[in-house]
Design a protein around this nucleic acid. Sequence first.
RNA 1: GUGGGUGUAGCUCAGUUUGGCAGAGCACCAGGUUGUGGCCCUGGUCGUCGCGGGUUCAAAUCCCGUCAUCCACCCCA
Length: 437
Amino acid sequence: MSSGNLQPIQGMSDLSAPEIRLWQEIEGKARRILSLYGYEEIRTPVLEYTSVFTRSIGDATDIVQKEMYTFEDRGGRQISLRPEGTASVMRYAAGLGPEAEGLRLYYIGPMFRCERPQAGRKRQFHQLGSEMIGQASPAADVETLALQMHLLSSWGLEGCSVEINTRGLPEDRQAVAEGLAAALQPHREALCEDCRRRFDANILRILDCKKDACKKIADGLPPVTDFMSEASRQYLDEVKRLLDLLNIPVRLNPRLVRGLDYYVHTVWEITHGALGAQNAIAGGGRYRMEMDGRTIDGVGFAMGLERVVSALQAALQGQAPVAGERPVWLVSMGQKAFEENMVLAQTLRLRGLSCGFNLTPGSMKSQMRAANRAQAAQAIIRGDREIESGAFLLKNMADGVQQELDMPALLNTLLDSRIDPAHTPAKAETTNPAGSP
RNA sequence: GUGGGUGUAGCUCAGUUUGGCAGAGCACCAGGUUGUGGCCCUGGUCGUCGCGGGUUCAAAUCCCGUCAUCCACCCCA
């Protein structure tokens, strides 16, 4: 691979066959399931005023401070490529006013964060997310989680684990920070360098430090709920009770921290073991944000589609990838047959049959090779003899058997063969697809 | 932003230690079969060795710089 400038911008990539078929399948299933839960798609602009993100996600967060693509447009306005989807949907909802209450919206599309790329992290990546506006009730949080589990199982993605925690209400934050500070004060010198910095900058983050020394200290701390109000604790209890009712297996992780400022109450994260360091395929939670003087509540999730795809690919290891459609290949000997075949191709396609042919025919051998490469199910061979007699030589590419047919018989045979097409096993359409290795 | 690995044919990679003709497998094209693919055999096409500079009679190989990519940290989906 030479360098040159034929490659896309760093951290961005072209998605094409064959993986794109898996993407399409994932998206198609997702759209169906989201509609079962009453969600409608929303497509917001990829560019927003920078303030849409800074005010909701939080000025101090890493996303805003060092990861956004921000620039001035020709009119001197500060605009940014969206780093996530929730803020835009909230902007939309705030604009609707009271009408927005109860809205259920989902989005699928590219997001942009200017980070150093690594496994499971791109600068342009894709998220599928849902937002339910208002409905500040534990039942909404639990229904959202149920929807998400439904999506995962529809894709056949097994081996996910779900962790939940609570951020409490905004009013609890100061108490939580103070409580943690008091509890951590005696161990302050034993913390790692990063955590000593976090002590003042973002004390919650100490809870999920990966260093052994910090983990041990964090293990000894009281759960964050101890510092929260009674209302926050009751909310969490109700969420747990309802999750249990729906039989959704989650692990309560009192040290789970989520970085965005807008979260309140329930937060969660879904990870998958096959992913390496960036193992979170999805995150979600309840949020509350101020938009132009209005307070917007909601609950939603976001799933990283690249990560879902990698996890699925790991799970499907060794199994056939999603197959493309197998065409009929039209083989022509001579100019007359070639022209007749161009007409035939249109006839077949208008009847819903996938077909192809060499645009510059060449020898029969090369045309048959092309048929093979295109994974053709059958070939139709025509030369002067067939044109004269009006016959079609139909060859089954799998067993090599040929038969001579007239037009009606040809169409019948081809249409029949579409009814049980050679679908590969991996493309199972059951609700419980293969996935357990 | 920080640290490490890797850049050689369309793809996967040898060759770099110890400087000496640019390689293999797969893919592609053609022939073996004048109208029959896959398997097999034979032949063929495809290279600014990431880029720029330096050392040398001679550089893919050594030195300096640079870019890209992968992995990890930070953080997130």
